[in-house]
């Protein structure tokens, strides 16, 4: 798709939420979700990302994929800011259950309770679940 095609939607801005539910390397969902977010940024929508269940591992610091021979794409999350994707939410219950804290993540996030996450979802117009 060329740049003109991507820009022709000018005007409509919707609230997009990407829900990331899976660990980063066990399946390709996390990587391909990130690709949607990056491409989607050109449409200048109101974008949020939520990390729940094993999805919280996507943001974990210190990922080393050398031995599994896969590309470590975790640095890309730090680039999201340049794409104006700055609303990153982590589900507290998922984080706690895995023994993680905010300090374990490669980017600043807002930690939400399950109830707050439900409210966030309620407030969205388009939810893409990966």
């Amino acid at each position: 798709m060329n740049e003109d095609e991507m820009m022709e939607e000018g005007g409509t801005i919707k609230k997009f939420l990407y829900v990331n539910r899976r660990a980063p390397y066990g399946s390709v969902y996390a990587l391909e979700s990130l690709e949607v977010v990056l491409i989607g940024a050109a449409f200048e929508q109101d974008v949020s990302m939520a990390f729940v269940d094993d999805g919280v591992y996507q943001l974990k610091k210190g990922q080393d994929t050398k031995d599994v021979d896969m590309k470590n794409f975790s640095p890309t999350y730090r680039a999201l800011e340049m794409y104006d994707v700055e609303k990153l939410y982590v589900d507290k219950a998922s984080m706690d259950a895995r023994g993680l804290t905010e300090e374990d993540f490669v980017v600043p996030v807002e930690v939400l309770s399950t109830e707050q996450l439900a409210e966030l979802m309620e407030d969205q117009e388009v939810i893409l679940s990966f």
């Binding site: 798709m1 095609e5 991507m6 939607e9 409509t12 919707k14 997009f16 690709e35 949607v36 491409i39 989607g40 050109a42 449409f43 929508q45 388009v126 939810i127 893409l128």
Partner: peptide, 15 residues
């Protein structure tokens, strides 16, 4: 391209 997915989200009432 993936832009077609985003466009579909924008243009439709429900994705």
């Amino acid at each position: 391209g993936l832009g077609q997915l985003i466009e579909a989200g924008i243009q439709s009432d429900r994705l």
